[in-house]
Structure formats: structure tokens, C-alpha cells
Write a protein that binds this DNA or RNA. Structure first.
Lengths: 107, 107
DNA sequence: CTAATATTGTAGATTATTTACAATTGCAAA
DNA sequence: TTTGCAATTGTAAATAATCTACAATATTAG
């Protein structure tokens, strides 16, 4: 059955999502948000990068990319950056729960 | 029910996988394969990057990363690079079918 | 050992990103 | 309208990451 097959493949891919880290240029391409704006949001503490040391290139994980995409949606809907951030922070909890479920499922 | 919820979220994420493009440094981090080796495999035609023009940085999509991970597994099992590539090419068809199913499901 | 396969090293040039400064835009309240 | 704040954008100079193209080394089968 098709859906079962697909689910198996994707559950397996939790490993992939966990290891996924991308640079700011890729985040920009994926989300459509300019790099300048991504840095600005990070300066404001809205998102967090995995930068090792000052001066080195920023790295973002799946959750950060997801968060940026969600904030973008709300901004387009007319919310302020602050309001968008607050709403998204709540939605992120659901995503984190989902991820931790996969974590359990994959070991 | 938990599994239904998760499946919904992931099916939605087909959009994410479709847009995903990462640089060679990230592919290296994700897969554990040195950048030098990734370029070598690409020179041999085993994998393909989305490079726009000569000299610009390489970009890889989800399928390419997946392929690299699969080849790595087989190499670790003792297969030659050529044998690994052949086996993986077959497995990739399954992944592509899976992706096209999600493509249908998401519109 | 030899030959083919597979990986690795590196210099010099180029691309992408960083920080830190400031300028600009948009919008709501006075 | 102007004042003030939120949000975004611009850019120069320095650094990090990647590129190509050359070659060297390592590994394995016959």
C-alpha cells in the first residue's frame, strides 16, 4: 500500500532532518527572505544560528528554517514582526513534539 | 491519533524538500564525506550538482544528498565505487517515485 | 609487481559571508 | 504634518569558503 511505504521512507528520514544544517545563502534561497533580513532577525533574537565562533559563517537547522517560513507567512498576512514571532513560537512547540516523536520512532 | 498527525505534517513538508538546496560544505557535514571526495564523485559523473556556471559554488538537492548517503553505506560495506553507484541508481528510482507521489499529494 | 581505481593535497583565484557603520522606509499617534 | 519607533536595506573592507587545475599518494585486483 502506497501510503505505508511512503510513511516508512519519511520516518527513516528523521535522521536526515536531524543532521540538516545549511548556510545563510541556502536559507535565503529556500525561504525567499534576503540574507540581510535573516541576519537582522537573528540580531533581534528571533532566530538562532549554530555559529561556532564570531566571524565564522552562520549555520541553521531545520527548526530555524521552519520558523523563518512560518514568520514569513504571518508577515505577509499583515502581522507585525513581534506578533508574528509570538504566534510562531507557539506553533514551534508542535513541530518540536513531532520531531521528538520521530526521534523515539527511529531507535 | 499521533501517527496521522505526524504524517500530515511530513506530507506538507514535501514543499520543503523540493526547495532544499545546499552547498558542498553542508553536504559534507550532513553526509560525513569530505568536500574533496564529493567533487571527485561529481567529476566522475556519479552525482550532479545544480551549479549555474563554471566557477560558481555547487548546489545540491535532496536527491543528490540522499544518493551520496546511500553510496557511502555501500562503500562501507565493501563494494567498489562503481558497484555502489550501480546499486544506488536502482534504489534512487524508488525515492523518485516516492517524491513524485508527494508532489501529487500536495496539490 | 603492475595497472587501474580511488582518494587526497594544495596554490592561487574567485565567490560568499561577516561585522559594523549608517540610511531609508512605513506607519501610527500626537 | 511631524515625530518617533519598527522594520528593512545599503555598503565597504576583511575574512571564510569554495573553485579549478595541477599532481601525488593510497588501495586493490590480477
Amino acid at each position: 500500500m502506497a501510503k505505508t511505504e511512503a510513511k516508512t521512507e519519511l520516518t527513516f528520514d528523521y535522521d536526515f532532518l536531524e543532521k540538516l544544517v545549511v548556510g545563510i545563502g541556502e536559507v535565503s534561497q529556500i525561504t525567499g527572505i534576503p540574507t540581510r533580513q535573516i541576519r537582522y532577525w537573528e540580531d533581534k533574537g528571533i532566530i538562532t544560528s549554530l555559529t561556532e565562533e564570531e566571524g565564522k559563517n552562520r549555520r541553521y537547522d531545520y527548526k530555524s528554517i521552519k520558523k523563518i517560513l512560518l514568520i514569513k507567512e504571518l508577515l505577509d498576512d499583515g502581522y507585525t514582526l513581534e506578533a508574528s514571532t509570538e504566534k510562531v513560537t507557539k506553533r514551534m512547540e508542535i513541530i518540536e513534539k513531532m520531531l521528538s516523536k520521530f526521534k523515539q520512532g527511529s531507535r
